[in-house]
Design a protein around this nucleic acid. Sequence first.
DNA 1: ATGGCATTGTACCAATGA
Length: 255
Amino acid sequence: MKIATWNVNSIRVRLDQILEWLQKENIDVLGMQEIKTPDDKFPYNNFRDVGYNIESFGEVGFNGVAIASKLSMEDVKKGFVLDARDQKRMISCEINGIKIINVYVPNGKNVGATDYYYKLDYLAKLKEYLSSLLKSTNRIILMGDLNVALSDLDVYNSNQMGFKIGFTSPERNAMKDILDIGFFDACREFHKNEKIFSFWDYRANSFLRNVGLRVDYILMTKEIFKKAVFCDIDAKERAKRGSSDHAPLYAQIND
DNA sequence: ATGGCATTGTACCAATGA
């Protein structure tokens, strides 16, 4: 099974690029974030036409998540009590007996802002949710834009990042707490000691200068990770004209 | 130190992103 996650920054603008990539890479399951489209305007049929089941959980203007899957999705869940602002940030389903959770964690705006505490609260509640889930299954994949860079290897310049949003100690600790309850950071496991990024700002030629961050993840429980063959970031998609500011991540799991 | 760019809605600008 080939799984992927991509912060697409508008599903409507990126539709052709997404469909092309899905088919080229033969992706079975794709979690998307920042679709920026309410469900009544979601391009469902474009996905169905190329062989994907599609579920979305969107809202007007911002946020929004979706899952496209060639395999049938069971127990689709949209909206969780953990979101204090009731924004459209999480969708989950079960595919081949694996619980797949697709999440778009709040970015936090500025360190110390109310949005920052909303983000920390969200991460804490996400951990609680995953902890309770682990009592009933050890087959979980958590994918998405977690908006936190874990280590020095995940930022272009750790010296300049210490007090910036996405790299403060409380955020990184919240993320480590999630890993500590039993998740493997798949991309990092396959790229030890390597600077790898999944996001490059549109501004200041960031991509060409490789000024990036790794804030997108595929996390797997041990039960799933031991079947993983690779996990990588496809920066070629970020290089394309008119792309999202995030690149897709993809992983292969052999069953 | 700031803004740099792209997207959205209702729009000729403000809000959001990270």
